[in-house]
């Protein structure tokens, strides 16, 4: 295995201070290789979103090893309506990551945005619209484009299709699979949905109570779960029959 793009070993993290300080992650270890998709599944409170935030450097109260060997890792959130600035146009939103990356020339920014649109299935006419004037699927395409346009190779996807209707969900998952191949991306894919994880991921880590209870190849885990919690989760997942 080449040098991992994410290397986490015995990671612990906490929220709060003093008496209210609460441990969220417990001895979490995982590796993500370049070009790999690693799913992290768990239910509410499992710590999966906290793990995602750690990878992006958004959690500071941590101990253990956390190495991210990719500049500017980016995140795509569940609800693009909440993560896109409602007052700005799509064009502005897509130029913003380039501005923060130091691309000062306006013409260059605009050209790079226009060049990027076909990759995520958006049209030039969308550039003048605001998030409210887009459909849910289009908004998530904008959020994905905004995450990718700086040239990041590591993308953390936090429930990226959970808020979408099932037909849109299928389109966005297909888009993510295509982008991964075309751009050589690595994904850390956070989800509560085992069926969605199966479709996109090479390996999966199952989390509960802040710990990874089982990790391995998706087929191996889905066909031969060893941990009782994984078995329970699979049994409850109605979409997999």
């Amino acid at each position: 295995m080449s040098e991992p793009i994410v290397h986490i070993a015995r990671l612990n993290s906490w929220y709060g201070r003093g008496k209210g300080r609460k441990q969220v992650l417990r001895d979490v270890s995982l590796k993500l290789a370049p070009g790999e998709v690693l799913g992290v599944v768990g239910e509410s409170g499992s710590g999966k979103s906290t793990l995602a935030k750690c990878v992006l450097g958004m959690v500071t109260d941590i101990t253990g090893t956390l190495e991210v060997n990719s500049p500017r890792p980016q995140m795509v959130f569940q609800d693009p309506y909440g993560s896109l600035n409602p007052a700005k146009t799509v064009g502005w939103i897509l130029e913003e990551p380039l501005r923060t990356a130091g691309v000062k020339d306006k013409g260059e920014r605009r050209q790079r945005v226009r060049d990027f649109l076909p990759l995520v299935g958006l049209e030039e006419e969308h550039l003048a619209r605001r998030p409210a004037q887009l459909s849910g699927g289009q908004r998530q395409r904008v959020a994905i484009a905004a995450a990718l346009i700086q040239g990041s190779r590591l993308i953390v996807l936090d429930e990226p299709v959970s808020a979408l209707d099932v037909t849109l969900q299928a389109q966005i998952l297909r888009l993510l699979a295509d982008l991964k191949e075309e751009l050589g991306l690595s994904y850390l894919f956070i989800s509560h949905d085992l069926a969605v994880v199966y479709q996109l991921c090479d390996r999966v880590a199952v989390m509960t109570g802040g710990e990874i209870v089982e990790e391995g190849d998706v087929d191996e885990i889905y066909d031969h779960p060893r941990h009782a919690y994984t078995k329970k989760l699979l049994a409850a997942s109605l979409a997999l029959d």
Partner: peptide, 16 residues
Amino acid sequence: KLLIASRPSRKKLRGG
């Protein structure tokens, strides 16, 4: 048919 086909299942998605 579209609804059923869109439903995530044990089917792998690969780019292309």
